[in-house]
């Protein structure tokens, strides 16, 4: 049977096919289900189901037809019975879509600004910039403070190692480190104020 059959004829064939299916005629049943597909899809479209979900509605409806086949009365028209089931499953799909939409929000800004758990390339470049800037500022310190800051703070050497390297006493190194850090803080604050 083709899609071009006149509706009355189609109705009669489907009703007869479904009545045969109720008796266990698998071929008649296969014919009826095949014919139902286009009618279900049209019903779902008319109900406003998205094109991407039409197939789901068709399959849900076919399964429902299978479960509800005993409720079809061959003395009555088949198409209203079919359309009632298809409409219901289309509405179920629309409700499911609506529930899904309520649960999941689209927030492009949050997605774009979400922090990457691992340090990225940008983070590494910023860190190198900061280090370069700090080294430049350290270079402006007096020699004694510069040595203390570089060896003790930046290179994380011990007081003993630094004293051996520079020939200065540990007390002098501590004083120079303290002064150097205070000077650096003042210079960097000025730098950021200028930038800011």
């Amino acid at each position: 049977m083709s899609e071009d059959d006149i509706p009355d004829d189609r109705e009669a064939r489907l009703a007869a096919g479904m009545a045969a299916a109720q008796q266990g005629d698998a071929d008649a049943y296969r014919f009826v289900l095949h014919q139902c597909v286009s009618i279900i899809a049209a019903t779902a479209r008319a109900r406003g189901v998205d094109a991407g979900r039409i197939d789901d509605v068709v399959q849900e409806t076919l399964i429902t037809i299978h479960r509800a086949r005993a409720t079809y009365d061959p003395a009555r028209p088949f198409l209203p019975w079919l359309r009632a089931i298809a409409s219901r499953r289309a509405i179920d799909s629309l409700r499911g879509q609506e529930r899904h939409g309520r649960r999941e929000v689209h927030d492009a800004f949050a997605y774009d600004t979400h922090a990457d758990p691992a340090p990225g390339v940008v983070h590494e470049l910023e860190r190198r910039d900061d280090l370069r800037h700090l080294s430049a500022v350290v270079e402006t310190l007096p020699e004694s403070q510069r040595q203390a800051v570089r060896h003790l703070a930046l290179e994380e050497r011990s007081l003993g190692e630094t004293a051996a390297l520079t020939g200065r006493s540990k007390i002098a190194l501590k004083v120079n480190l303290h002064r150097g850090i205070r000077a650096l803080r003042a210079k960097l604050a000025g730098t950021y104020d200028d930038h800011g």
Binding site: Q22, G24, D27, Y29, V37, D55, L62, I63, H66, Y72
Partner: peptide, 21 residues
């Protein structure tokens, strides 16, 4: 949509048993 419509129809037809109206 685990199956195509064709596969689903075949499965349903294979599962068909006579039913009491």
């Amino acid at each position: 949509a685990e199956w195509s419509e064709e596969q689903l129809i075949d499965r349903l037809a294979a599962d068909l048993k006579p039913v009491r109206k």
